[in-house]
Design a protein around this nucleic acid. Sequence first.
RNA 1: GCCGCUGUGGUGGAAUUGGUAGACACGUUGGACUUAAAAUCCAAUGGAGCUUAAAACUCCGUGCCGGUUCGAGUCCGGCCAGCGGUACCA
Length: 868
Amino acid sequence: MSEYNPASIEPKWQKFWSENKTFKTDDTDKSKPKYYVLDMFPYPSGAGLHVGHPEGYTATDIIARYKRMNGFNVLHPMGWDAFGLPAEQYAVKTGTHPKITTERNIEGFRRQLQALGFSYDWDREVNTTDPAYFKWTQWIFLKLYEKGLAYQADVPVNWCPELGTVLANEEVIDGKSEVGGFPVVRKPMRQWMLKITAYAERLLNDLEMLDWPESIKEMQRNWIGKSTGADISFSLVGIDNKTIDVFTTRPDTLFGATYMVLSPEHPLVEELTTSEQKNEVEAYIEKAALKSDLDRTDLNKDKTGVFTGGFAINPATGNQIPVWVADYVLMSYGTGAIMAVPGHDERDWEFAKKFGIEIVEVIEGGDINAEAFTGDGVCVNSSNSEVSLDDLSVSDAKKTIINWLEEKGIGSGSINYKLRDWLFSRQRYWGEPFPIIHTEDGPKPLPTSELPIELPEVKQYKPSGTGESPLATIEEWVQTTDPETGKPARRETNTMPQWAGSCWYYLRYIDPDYTLGPVDPEKEKYWMPVDLYVGGAEHAVLHLLYARFWHKVLYDCGVVSTPEPFMKLVNQGMILGEMEFTAFKNTAGDYVDAREIDENTEVESVKLTEDQVEKKGDRFVLKGTDTGIDARSFKMSKSRGNVINPDDVVEKYGADALRLYEMFMGPLEQVKPWSMSGVEGVNRFLKRVYRTFIDDKTGKLHDAVKEAEPSKAQLKALHETIKKVSEDIDGFRFNTAISALMIFNNEAMRWDVRPVSIMKDFLLILNPFAPHLAEELWQALGNEQTMSYEKWPVFEAKYLVADEMTYAVQVNGKVRGQITVSMDDHKNKDVVLGLAKAEPSVRRYLDAGTLIKEIFVPGKIVNLVVKG
RNA sequence: GCCGCUGUGGUGGAAUUGGUAGACACGUUGGACUUAAAAUCCAAUGGAGCUUAAAACUCCGUGCCGGUUCGAGUCCGGCCAGCGGUACCA
């Protein structure tokens, strides 16, 4: 008795691949075309791998193995994004050095990944916390600094008292920290910034050359947020040498600007405020400063503001217009001041209504008494002695008014971006130190010969609490000397954010031991750009935008040869937990329909098993009742207790089954719920494949598998499968590729003779999906070498040709019968229609009415239109 | 609110350019093997109707309403629901 036993097969082949360095990438052979297939490297957490990781990793592994067999030189590496908050928080709690935690976690991750049989070149492993790695992260920072793209600024930052650190905008969700969900407040601090805004236009334009999902490109476009309009200067009443400068996308509505608004932080507020208004304005500003970002952008969009008492002059109308302070204008966008056109801007309209400010119509087409009109129309009430916009369309009016503004020297066409500069420092221990010292003359970059700047040992990892990092408490590290002048200096105590290391790791894989720069320029030219990059959609904007930014900077420095790093991007969809059924009981203990529950209803949730429920119409109900229940799957989380551990799956069903199931679940990009019985399903398939080759009574090769001339039907089955699997891998449709493999095996199992030539090709196309089993059976067929570099079978159309084909025959668009036509006649209209009309099941419909039209699509269908 | 994606059996999902909806799996039911179970194998399985039963047949069916077409899951218009992103960006 010998059954399919992944527990013995899989470690055997993992050992073989590792000992023989089967997947070591050869850099010297540049005759082959290259293919660089990259995974988003993981943060090695203490919790280990979850089933979401192997989803993308299996997809790329299939591609990597497929490309190798198709003659490509494949670069398929793996590494660790190992700086980050969790290790540091653990250190704060336990005193364990993050380095130790990180090493332990990496060990775990590596073991888990290797147990899944991924064909990584493990000799290229990188680790962002390795000084030999972050030396070059620091080196790249110096490049940024050199180019004037890194600067210090006092910026209101997201200060999280609980974490004792500052967070990036992206790490703040709904006014709370992404990690831990702690409250975040605004606090001005001296910070390192990266001038990503200088690259806004290129980051936007170059999206067009990328083969990325349109949705991701759109998200990046929205994030960059380009808008076209004009800058306009408004002179002030009683203050001669200053103006309020605004950015507007609607210069065409200038005649309708009836007031202005300054953000509470705007530098001109103080000067404009009259003594009568002083108390009120100061109180308002103080209140606004205390508000967190959450409060300021709260769902509650009720406008607040106060009049400064000051006036500006609308350059178009010459009217004096009041200047207000309101927190609906943000200091961080544009100039921090706006011209308000209540007739044609919803926010201004709302504000003007509330405070009784004049609303003027300057674009025809709406009812400005009822609401702001933001649509297209024709200008009205828009002329003075020098310029008239009346009767012009919005777009013509924009051009005309900008010309006028430029002539007068009080404005010009202008472009603005939502994208802000990147807040690049963190007050943490576990990150890359900045290669910067502070001297009497200000911040100064250290020479590259000093790199890497390593982290000192500290006694405690707690943030200093003042907002400075724990590094600030290590006097002997902070105190240093300027290597150039020998004068005393202080080290920068901030560290870089986790994004830094992940911004360029794909370059380091190309030559992880290179000592003369981040990457060997020769090898870079061969391997870049990354041909395929697979990862989660959660990195749609930030990681991918930051990495693109760094890459462009390196491109400008001549370090890399391509303007974009990642040519094709695929996002895998999240894997949810198993479907859960939940019923609800009210306080009296009676079941209530799920549809009747809103957030005010007090209910108790009751978990149900699958056999306690049934489907009624389009909803699920308690079996035998009419009580609707909730049926859905949830994101896996510890608290919900629905996390699937890949180790358990491997132990029970094997790595090949896990790989296969993750790919069989559905389209890669889609969100899909986990189902353990689905794993059993693919496991059964693998067992059947095993039995197709191996006689389970003897454990030897099955008698049916032998050298023999394949039949026509066998060749057809094989080549159909080769075609389908090849096309589906190319199109990332792994689920349907697996289905084709199943169909083939179901058929092959029934053959009394399974010719070796046929079965070999089947193993070759199975290999990318279930490599352990494929190698095992390949060996059982008498092969001694790994199959990883065998040539991928070529599909030949000649084997697919059938002798006859079946046409569906429709009457009035409904299928009423089928006819079989020989291949010789299948395009012969008379023959096909004759057979169709003679078919008894069709005949009846013809007899019942009059045939008025015959539709014949060769190779597809027959449709007869009958009337009466 | 705005932008994007997705709605197909009891479940996950298939279905080239519009051409036999439900491939492949899961689950369920029945059967075979077995002392029994597991494993394995075979068969049935969208819903409703008709029929003693079977075969055959009929009607309905891809979120909803309408349209184009000989023919629509697929194309067009209008909705609804779920998910993701974003949110006073001037």
